[in-house]
Design a protein around this nucleic acid. Structure first.
Lengths: 109, 109
DNA sequence: ATCGTTCATCGTCGATTTACGATTTTGGGG
DNA sequence: CCCCAAAATCGTAAATCGACGATGAACGAT
């Protein structure tokens, strides 16, 4: 931006697609994880029951087990929850850091 | 809508798909409106510039005018921003109530 | 009345989501 | 060793999203 390189027709003319706003991307990612009623419900459930619960979540939602599993994966990838294996079952609980990050980004708006 | 037609086998026997959790749905809706980097950027822009700005937003984003218009519509439908016509231009500004609702739902988590 | 500008809407197209059943994986018991 | 239950993953079909260009409507200025 400041100056071009010395040669004539240089200077990148690429679309760049600029990294945009990393913070915006992060917030969008977190928001996206919450952008589905089922995922909001799962998160609320895990917050209520401090103790992690497991596929019990499946029984709380009108969704197939595989579908719930996908939603859990999305929440986990976003860093909002974490799951730990406990025998044949898996216990999920909230990931406080992720949740706090979300809250921070939101009311930092 | 109010009542069924008089004949015998009318009346909906539909599964209903129960309203589930209205609060969850609302939060999901608001989150979804923010679930895109461009929309987060627009919102932040409108918050920074107290004064509403208009299609100037288009120049801030690497997107076509029609695309930005769609994003603005989504934000408006979610109740996060509002737009007011000013001659041939349209001024957008944040809708404090919607934004506060979002913040409330998030840190009420 | 006819432009030119600004913005919204329409129609389209590829990519992504959401949901499901079926299958695979994982970890105990009998 | 073989089965059973729990959970993840795969494959797939339907719906929706995100982006664009083109078109349409609203308004001020010439």
């Amino acid at each position: 931006m400041a100056d071009c390189n010395p040669s004539a027709d240089c200077c990148d003319t690429a679309p760049v697609a600029l990294p945009a706003d990393p913070a915006a991307e992060r917030l969008a990612g977190l928001a996206w994880a919450l952008a589905h009623p089922a995922r909001v419900r799962i998160l609320k459930l895990l917050i209520r029951r401090q103790s992690c619960i497991c596929g019990e979540i499946v029984h709380e939602l009108p969704l197939a087990q595989s579908t719930v599993s996908q939603h859990l994966k999305i929440l986990k990838n976003a860093g909002l929850i974490q799951g730990e294996v406990d025998g044949p079952k898996v216990c999920y609980c909230i990931h406080p850091a992720g949740l706090n990050e979300l809250k921070g980004l939101i009311d930092g708006l």
